[in-house]
């Protein structure tokens, strides 16, 4: 779930045009794809922590893994998308407090991951039960490696349909 910035809870204090801007900024952000898992937008991924309409616009994002090389590219992509949407000169800030968790991936994001062939992460609080194959939904799966092609993924294999698949690691 994306945790909305506190400012959004104070609509009374925000002018109508600023609210309209904020909505337009969130809509633009929903079109910025994660470069490594392009089926997810940065909003689906839950890394957008705060939006200040400005001007200039300030967007605060949480890096997923500390060393994730996509974080900087995401910053550039956000600035480009916002410029296209009429918000030039946006600032993208990074914040590690509180640290990003896979629990912030939206329900829509989880469905998109599965459709894309990546087993979505389980909620951390209920981290039990099998990882299901994203293709045949079988619970009979086996971990091949805890580390996959990107920091956020592990390599699994379905023992029924025998297909290997990526699992989005719980963090």
């Amino acid at each position: 779930m994306v945790s909305l910035p506190e400012d959004d809870a104070e609509d009374d204090a925000v002018t109508n045009s600023a609210t309209a801007d904020t909505d337009a900024i969130w809509a633009a952000l929903a079109e910025v794809a994660d470069p490594e898992v392009p089926v997810l937008s940065v909003v689906d991924l839950g890394i957008v922590r705060a939006v200040e309409a400005g001007p200039p616009v300030t967007v605060t994002i949480s890096p997923t893994y500390t060393g994730c090389p996509a974080t900087e590219i995401i910053g550039t992509l956000i600035r480009e998308k916002l410029a296209e949407a009429g918000f030039p000169g946006a600032t993208v800030r990074q914040s590690i407090v509180p640290p990003w968790t896979t629990d912030w991936i939206s329900e829509e994001g989880r469905a998109k991951l599965k459709a894309y062939g990546i087993a979505p992460p389980k909620p951390r609080a209920a981290n039990s039960g099998p990882i299901r194959c994203p293709r045949c939904d079988s619970p009979n799966t086996k971990r091949v490696s805890e580390f996959g092609s990107t920091p956020c993924k592990a390599l699994w294999r379905c023992t029924d349909c025998l297909e290997p698949f990526d699992h989005f690691k719980c963090l």
Binding site: Y65, T66, G67, S145, E146, F147, L155
Partner: peptide
């Protein structure tokens, strides 16, 4: 992949 993932985290 595992060892370079560790490297990246560090």
């Amino acid at each position: 992949m595992a060892i370079t993932n560790l490297s990246l985290d560090l």
